Amino acid sequence: MASQKYITGYNNLANYLGMKLSTVEKNVQNGIIPKRKLGVNAIFIIEEVDNVISDIQN
C-alpha cells in the first residue's frame, strides 16, 4: 500500500502540523507553506510541507 503523498484542506494540514488553523492560513497566504490547487480544493504535498518546516526549524 502506498503512503499518502498529499494532504487536502487547511484543517487537515493544521492537524498534521499541530498548528492552529489561523496560523496555517497565514503561512499559506504569505507563501511560506506551498499550496497547490486541484479544482476548487487546496492540496499540500507532504514532502514540500515537511521540507519547509525542517528549514524553519534549522
Rank of each mutant, 00 (worst) to 15 (best):
M1W: 06
M1C: 08
M1S: 08
M1N: 07
A2M: 10
A2F: 08
S3D: 13
S3L: 10
Q4F: 13
Q4T: 14
Q4P: 12
Q4M: 15
Q4W: 09
K5Q: 13
K5T: 11
Y6A: 09
I7W: 01
I7P: 00
G9C: 00
Y10I: 12
Y10A: 07
N11R: 11
N11G: 09
N11M: 10
N12K: 14
N12S: 12
L13R: 01
L13S: 01
L13M: 02
L13D: 00
A14P: 03
A14N: 06
A14C: 09
A14Q: 05
A14K: 00
N15V: 15
N15G: 15
N15R: 14
N15L: 15
Y16H: 11
Y16F: 14
Y16V: 05
Y16Q: 05
Y16P: 01
L17P: 04
G18M: 06
G18D: 03
M19V: 06
M19F: 14
M19D: 10
K20F: 07
K20W: 07
K20T: 08
S22F: 11
S22I: 04
S22L: 09
S22M: 14
T23L: 03
V24Y: 04
V24K: 00
V24D: 02
V24R: 00
E25D: 10
E25P: 07
E25V: 15
N27P: 05
N27D: 13
N27L: 06
N27S: 13
V28K: 00
V28C: 08
V28E: 06
V28M: 06
V28P: 03
Q29D: 14
Q29Y: 10
Q29S: 15
Q29L: 13
N30Q: 14
N30E: 10
N30D: 15
N30C: 10
N30A: 11
N30M: 11
G31L: 05
G31E: 02
I32H: 14
I32P: 04
I32N: 11
I32V: 14
I33R: 03
I33T: 05
I33F: 08
P34S: 00
P34N: 01
P34Q: 00
K35L: 10
R36K: 14
R36I: 09
K37C: 02
K37A: 04
K37E: 08
L38G: 02
L38Q: 12
G39C: 07
G39D: 01
G39E: 03
G39T: 00
G39K: 04
V40F: 06
V40R: 13
N41M: 11
N41T: 05
N41P: 01
N41I: 01
A42N: 14
A42S: 15
I43T: 02
I43V: 10
I43R: 03
F44H: 02
F44D: 05
I45W: 04
I46D: 01
I46R: 01
E47R: 12
E47W: 02
E48F: 04
V49Y: 02
V49T: 02
V49I: 15
D50G: 04
D50H: 00
D50E: 13
D50P: 05
D50Y: 01
N51V: 06
N51I: 13
V52W: 03
V52L: 08
I53Q: 07
I53F: 07
S54T: 12
S54H: 15
D55E: 09
D55K: 15
D55I: 10
I56C: 09
I56T: 08
Q57C: 06
Q57D: 02
Q57I: 09
Q57Y: 04
N58L: 11
N58C: 13
